[in-house]
Computed example of a mutant assay.
Amino acid sequence: MAANPSDQQSVEQTEGEAWPEPAPDATYVIRRVHQLRRVPVVELSIEDLRIMVSQSVGTVAILPRILDLLEENPLSEGDFYPGDLLVATLRLRRDYWSDHVGLLDRARRVAQRADAMANQLNGAQALELRRLVGEFLSN
């Protein structure tokens, strides 16, 4: 998988907007998202990408990279369980996908592959993945 030239930029650079430092009492997730916005997209780990997409932060910058990873392995795993990156991605707002049809097509192909691979997961994980894939593909 060849990196996109834009992957060399951070979300902050792509968006052209620097966020202020988080408040001292900010949660771990808020502090982490602020940090991750400054890291080149190509350097973000699967877990970093999972955190960002689950918070809907930097989606335009990170989703092509996420889909590259998911096309290689639909069950790519962050810190929680196989397929957690895909689960976070499929939970993006429906209106995001309608504005990015090319990415939606890629995500649908990944979701179809993941559904076929769900038997590799344990009971509850497989059920949740299949449920989300079914919802995603039916819309």
Results as ranks from 00 to 15, higher is better:
130 R>F: 01
90 L>E: 00
52 M>Q: 06
60 V>C: 00
130 R>T: 13
74 P>F: 01
4 N>Q: 10
45 S>I: 11
116 A>K: 14
44 L>Y: 06
16 G>E: 06
20 P>H: 09
35 Q>Y: 04
53 V>N: 00
139 N>S: 05
97 W>H: 08
31 R>I: 07
130 R>V: 05
125 Q>F: 05
65 R>K: 15
88 A>M: 02
40 P>I: 13
39 V>E: 02
120 Q>C: 00
79 D>Y: 11
55 Q>H: 09
92 L>E: 02
120 Q>L: 06
103 L>F: 08
42 V>I: 15
5 P>D: 08
88 A>P: 01
128 E>S: 09
65 R>V: 04
128 E>M: 12
40 P>Y: 07
81 Y>V: 00
52 M>S: 09
12 E>T: 15
126 A>Y: 01
120 Q>M: 05
39 V>R: 08
59 T>S: 12
132 L>M: 10
103 L>S: 09
131 R>Y: 15
90 L>Q: 01
24 P>N: 03
138 S>T: 05
91 R>L: 15
21 E>S: 14
113 R>S: 13
25 D>F: 06
3 A>V: 10
2 A>F: 06
108 R>A: 10
1 M>R: 12
97 W>N: 00
128 E>L: 15
48 D>W: 08
52 M>W: 07
15 E>Y: 12
92 L>R: 07
88 A>F: 01
60 V>R: 14
79 D>V: 03
33 V>I: 13
105 D>P: 07
51 I>G: 02
40 P>G: 06
28 Y>M: 09
131 R>P: 07
82 P>Q: 02
107 A>K: 01
7 D>M: 10
20 P>F: 11
70 L>P: 10
131 R>S: 12
1 M>W: 08
79 D>P: 00
111 A>K: 04
